[in-house]
Design a protein around this nucleic acid. Structure first.
Length: 865
RNA sequence: GGAAGCGUAGCUCAGCGGGAGAGCGCUUGCCUUACAAGCAAGAGGUCACAGGUUCGAACCCUGUCGCUUCCACCA
């Protein structure tokens, strides 16, 4: 038997075991049993692994390891996401440091650079995922920009196009001037900011009267093509059809009536800028207004902006406001709160602009996805996220899928340069089918990253090729993710699953929390409040980190993480280590003799019964995604019941002829505990299980403990629990009287004398001598501890009688209150009439017990006095 | 403007109809030969507030206040 050190040191053992598991092929599906499949939410290659990933990966790994041990044919497919904008930004930034712009090097050269970079970072993030212990099948690793994914993306695009879901059109889009691309509505984050509300006079063309219009973006007035009022607004009805002169630009604007205008807001008059505001664009369509663009793709005023051309949008705002003021057009400026859209990748304020983009019609796809959740085909855990999901689907708008980037799946669309034909095909066309021209040009844009991500649950299984894997593992079992990507990803996967595979992509969606710092703030680089999982693993080990995350994974909305917690569960790992050390030291001579009927003592029956119950709780909890309950339950069982009570109970027997029996139970409980703990703490359990040497192979591939009903023993549990009370009673007296635990006291129990087994245990655990009961009286050498079922007299050398009276009176006080409460309850006729029989019985018993205790205490105090 | 979640011990949170729980922190006593990263014993709570339902409410309902978040085109 190998010896182990006194301290748990995760450093070497984690890397060692990960390598062995992988080499032995334990991460691959066994090929037998019912399939249980998870596809990993592919982390962005730009991301440094953070605690959110750690939580996400830990929970998936718990499920996979648990199911693997339960005999499922488990498959966990790993992979990474190419993260279009984020990656391109990162590489561009790097190039900028060398003074290079991507346009200088050209598309091909730039992409080569990105691929190099991506290769490096993919490796890095894979290493980080492995460090957490993720038991995924690396032979099936995928990348969202892989060739087979590209094939899938092209097929998806072309079929959606041919079925009429994909269209191209010129609409107002969210433009990020920093990233130089369009963003989908979901990629815009809104933030409430304090802004200014400018009131501007627009004079009528035929009089010296004017109307006042309020706006937060005066620079866009350069592109105004109308003024709108509500058609039912009595104040303005009569001016509809008249014209005003646009200040600074001296353009004539027609006043139109449009129901969009809210008479209550601002002045009730709205300047209409169809090319730079989504609502104004709609008004423009309804009223056939001219579109004038004044802001270019770099957020600068273009040549249509007259003297302001070339100015940045904010500089232009200043200039416009100055001029307005100077020329007397500015009535007043107020401050107001309004929400501003920002790019979710770089934080730049987005510019609504007119642009030609590709869209997916979402309404028809959303219907099926909605039904899936309403009918229970796909179930969210916790359930409340279903509302969020359904609501989004109800309000869904078309999805802008083109991006003006280079890093991504290029749109499979070609334009004939001669006849203008648009060709949408999976394979690059040779010539134009209409005019046979070979002068074709592929669309410059790429697809939104989420367009490929939505196909992830089946592209990772080989789609669009039909194959055995797809047949066997689709639909997958569960998707584990955080709520922040329900719209981006979860909903779209469900839509895509039904559309392309005619089946759901997964049965369950488990939504976990976001990790925040201990003050509840987002972890971010700029705040410097991040906790780096790799540093945590380095300092505490992956196992304690995993256990911490699992035990904190209750159903709230975020986890406020503090390294204090990790420290606590690091101590738990150390406890496991040392308990094992103790057992190993005591089983060196174990001869392999199995137990036979009748060998077991009370404490053996008790711990084995407790173990069965713990097993049930852990299994049920994992089955229902209650990771915290599972972790807590095994923690309590192991530390408190096994270490603090069982091991302590059993120490003397290890030096007796019962040694073999105890060895048996120790090994058996430890073995099962390791198995129950393995999904949570894979490394330490593997290491120690090997030392225990109960079975060949690795624990990762061993079986989950079966519930042994014959070991459930309510009698033993009750008896042992009473014994625990008695032990606590004696310890209590000793502690209250400052008697060192090492000093042995004599204890007498009222009622029947404890049997030998119990007597022995009490003596062991409370360090006392249990004496044959005799009629005691309290005195300056005898004190007592009273409970309803017994009284313990403790014999000592000398006692401070006054202190002792105080101590007992304090207890008495509690008893009196209890008696009162139960008595009152039982004298309530309504209670007796309505409460269930068993509750009434229970209450009666409680009153009886409390009364007994109270009377005993009164007598004891009387004795002392 | 809608919607959701949360307010329980000093801190972080669990419990979610029948005697207030955990970890950390705190107090006291212990180097009891697995572990001082430990053992034992404690102190500490009108379960945000106000109503209601119930024999009984931290738990269910309504409202109020506070914190957080999501959605929404109010210029």
């Amino acid at each position: 038997m190998d010896k182990i050190g006194t301290r748990y040191d995760p450093r070497n053992l984690e890397k060692k075991w990960y390598k062995i598991w992988e080499e032995k092929g334990h991460f691959k599906p066994s090929g037998e049993g019912e399939p249980y499949t998870i596809v990993i939410p592919p982390p962005n290659i730009t991301a440094q692994l953070h605690m959110g990933h750690a939580l996400n990966i830990t929970l998936q790994d718990i499920l996979i390891r648990y199911k693997r041990m339960r005999g499922y044919n488990t498959l966990w497919i790993p992979g990474e996401d190419h993260a279009g904008i984020a990656t391109q930004n990162t590489v561009e930034k790097k190039l900028a440091e060398e003074g290079i712009h991507r346009k200088d090097m050209g598309r091909e050269e730039f992409l080569k650079k990105v691929w190099d970079w991506a290769g490096e970072y993919r490796k890095r993030i894979v290493e980080q995922i492995k460090a957490i212990g993720a038991s995924c099948d690396w032979s099936r690793e995928h990348f969202t920009l892989d060739e087979n994914l590209n094939k899938a993306v092209r097929k998806a695009f072309v079929s959606l196009y041919k079925e009429g879901y994909i269209y191209r059109g010129k609409y107002i889009i969210n433009w990020c001037p920093r990233c130089g691309t369009v963003l989908s509505d979901e990629e815009v984050e809104h933030e409430e900011l304090e802004g200014k509300f400018y009131y501007i006079k627009y004079y009528f063309s035929d009089s010296d009267k004017y109307i006042t219009i309020a706006t937060t973006r005066p620079e866009t007035m350069l592109a105004d093509t109308a003024v709108a009022v509500h058609p039912g607004d009595d104040r303005f009805k009569h001016i509809i059809g008249k014209e005003v002169i646009l200040p600074l630009m001296n353009r004539k604007l027609k006043i139109i009536g449009d129901p969009y205008v809210d008479p209550e807001f601002g002045t009730g008059c709205l300047k209409v800028t169809p090319a730079h505001d989504p609502n104004d664009f709609q008004i423009g369509l309804r009223n056939d207004l001219e579109l004038i663009e004044v802001i270019d793709e770099n957020a600068k005023i273009n040549e249509n902006g007259g003297k302001y051309a070339g100015l940045d949008r904010y500089k232009a705002r200043e200039a416009v406001v100055n001029d307005l003021e100077e020329k007397g057009y500015l009535e007043k400026i107020e401050t107001m709160q309004h929400s501003v859209g920002k790019c979710y990748r770089c934080g730049t304020i987005v510019e609504p602009s007119l642009s030609d983009q590709w869209y997916v019609k979402m309404k028809p796809l959303a219907e099926r996805a909605k039904l899936a959740v309403q009918s229970g085909e796909v179930v969210f855990h916790p359930e409340r996220w279903e509302k969020v999901y359904i609501h989004w689907l109800d309000e869904i708008r078309d999805w802008c899928i083109s991006r003006q980037l280079w890093w991504g799946h290029r749109i499979p669309v070609w334009y004939c340069q001669d006849c203008g034909k648009i060709i949408v095909e999976e394979e690059t066309p040779e010539e134009c089918p209409d005019c046979q021209s070979k002068n074709l040009k592929q669309d410059e844009d790429v697809l939104d990253t989420w367009f490929s991500s939505q196909l992830w649950p089946f592209t990772t299984l080989g789609w669009p090729d039909e194959n055995a894997d797809l047949e066997k593992y689709y639909p997958t079992s569960v998707l584990v993710t955080a709520f922040d990507i329900i719209f981006f990803w979860v909903a779209r996967m469900i839509m895509a699953g039904y559309h392309f595979k005619e089946d759901k992509p997964f049965s369950d969606v488990y939504i976990h929390q976001l990790i925040r710092d201990r003050k509840g703030r987002k972890m971010s680089k700029s705040l410097g409040n991040g906790i780096d999982p790799l540093e945590v693993i380095e300092e505490y080990g992956a196992d304690p980190m995993r256990f911490t995350l699992a035990i904190l994974a209750a159903q709230g909305k975020d986890i406020k993480l503090d390294t204090r917690f990790i420290d606590a569960y690091h101590k738990f790992a150390n406890k496991i280590w040392n308990a094992t050390r103790f057992v190993l030291m005591n089983i060196e001579d174990y001869d392999g003799t199995k137990l036979s009927e009748g060998d077991l003592k009370l404490e053996d029956k008790w711990i084995l019964s407790r173990l069965q119950k713990t097993q049930s709780i852990v299994s049920n909890a994992i089955d229902s995604y209650d990771f915290n309950i599972a972790a807590k339950s095994i923690y309590n069982f192991f530390w408190s019941e096994f270490c603090d009570w069982y091991i302590e109970s059993v120490k003397p027997r290890l030096n007796s002829d019962e040694r073999t029996i105890v060895q048996n139970v120790l090994i058996s409980v430890l073995d099962s505990s390791f198995r129950l703990l393995h999904p949570f703490m894979p490394f330490i359990t593997e290491e120690l299980w090997q030392k225990l040497d109960v079975e060949d192979g690795e624990i990762i591939a061993s079986s989950w403990p079966e519930l042994k009903k014959e070991l459930l023993d309510e009698d033993a549990e009750e008896k042992y629990s009473l014994l625990m009370d008695k032990v606590r009673g004696i310890r209590n007296v000793k502690a209250d009287l400052n008697i060192p635990p090492t000093s042995k006291v004599q204890a007498y129990f009222t009622g029947s004398n404890p049997d030998n087994e119990t007597k022995f245990l009490i003596e062991t655990l409370a360090n006392c001598e249990v004496m044959e009961f005799q009629q005691n009286k309290l005195s300056n050498s005898v004190t007592a501890y009273a409970e309803e079922k017994y009284t313990i007299y403790v014999k000592l050398v000398e006692i401070d009688v006054q202190n002792e009276i105080k101590r007992l009176e304090k207890k008495l006080n509690k008893s009196v209150k209890e008696v009162e409460r139960f008595r009152k309850k039982l004298s309530n006729e309504q209670f007796l009439k309505n409460a269930p029989e068993e509750i009434i019985e229970e209450t009666k018993e409680k009153l009886q017990d409390a009364t007994t205790t109270k009377e005993k205490l009164e007598r004891l105090i009387e004795d002392l006095k």
